[in-house]
Simulated assay, not measured.
Amino acid sequence: MSENEQTKDREQAETQTTEAEETIENEISSDEVIEGENAEVEKDYKAMAEEAENRYLRLRADFDNYRRRIQKEGEAKEKYRAQSLITDILPALDNFERALTIDSSDDSTGSLLKGMQMVHSSLLQALKTEGLEVIEAVGQPFDPNLHQAVMQVSEEGVESNTVVEEFQKGYRLKDRVIRPSMVKVNE
């Protein structure tokens, strides 16, 4: 081999080495770019995953609240299922009580009155099994949640703000007031 050929071979080898070095440098810099892009993509992915998890947790909490609310509404509906029927029956019960205050002077009126008392007591018993309670009024302190004051009087020997007379009975279904007592209150 001549010297020229050897020189050409060396130059070619050097050129190839330089090209290889440049290629390696380009690959290293592109790897750094890719790594930077990967880090950015990973950061975006983590943010999206965190946001999705937060949305899921909020949705789950909303569903749990909804489920509890529906359950409470169902329990209340079951607890007070007889309220509308009882409210409709109360005027008839009041009429029974008014009829029972009539004096019976003869036997026929007495037997009719006794039959009405039996019907009244069985009606009251049926309502009590559903949870109906009579609100005690006379002699009790006035409570605006339980009593409706329609008159006010000034009587001696009776404490102030005490119910003196009851005009219409009040009723409560379990813990809910269906109808407050209409009362006369001492000043």
Rank of each mutant, 00 (worst) to 15 (best):
S2K: 08
E11D: 08
E11H: 11
Q12K: 10
A13R: 04
T15E: 12
T17K: 14
T18E: 13
T18L: 14
A20Y: 08
E21P: 04
E21K: 14
E22Q: 13
T23I: 02
I24N: 07
E25K: 07
E27H: 03
I28C: 03
S29F: 03
S30K: 09
D31P: 00
E32K: 13
E35P: 00
N38Q: 03
A39W: 01
A39P: 00
E40D: 06
E42V: 06
D44A: 10
Y45A: 11
Y45E: 12
K46E: 08
A47E: 08
M48V: 08
M48N: 07
E50M: 02
E50S: 05
E51R: 10
E53G: 04
E53P: 07
N54Q: 12
R55H: 07
R55T: 10
L57W: 10
R60D: 11
A61Y: 09
D62C: 08
Y66D: 14
R68D: 12
R69Q: 04
I70V: 14
Q71F: 05
E73L: 05
E75C: 01
A76N: 15
E78Q: 11
K79R: 15
T87E: 00
I89L: 04
P91G: 02
P91L: 01
N95Q: 15
F96A: 04
A99C: 15
T101I: 15
T101S: 13
D106K: 09
S108D: 14
S108P: 04
G110T: 09
G110C: 01
L112N: 10
L112C: 07
L113E: 05
M116D: 00
M118N: 11
L123I: 15
L123F: 12
L124M: 14
Q125R: 12
Q125V: 02
Q125I: 00
K128D: 02
E130H: 03
E136N: 13
E136L: 11
G139K: 06
Q140N: 07
F142G: 05
H147K: 03
H147S: 05
Q148F: 01
Q148L: 06
M151C: 03
Q152D: 05
Q152E: 08
Q152G: 02
G157Y: 01
V158P: 04
V158E: 02
S160E: 13
N161P: 14
T162I: 15
V164M: 02
Q168I: 11
Q168C: 02
G170D: 06
R172D: 13
R172M: 15
L173N: 07
L173P: 12
D175I: 02
S181N: 08
S181R: 05
S181P: 15
K184D: 08
E187I: 01
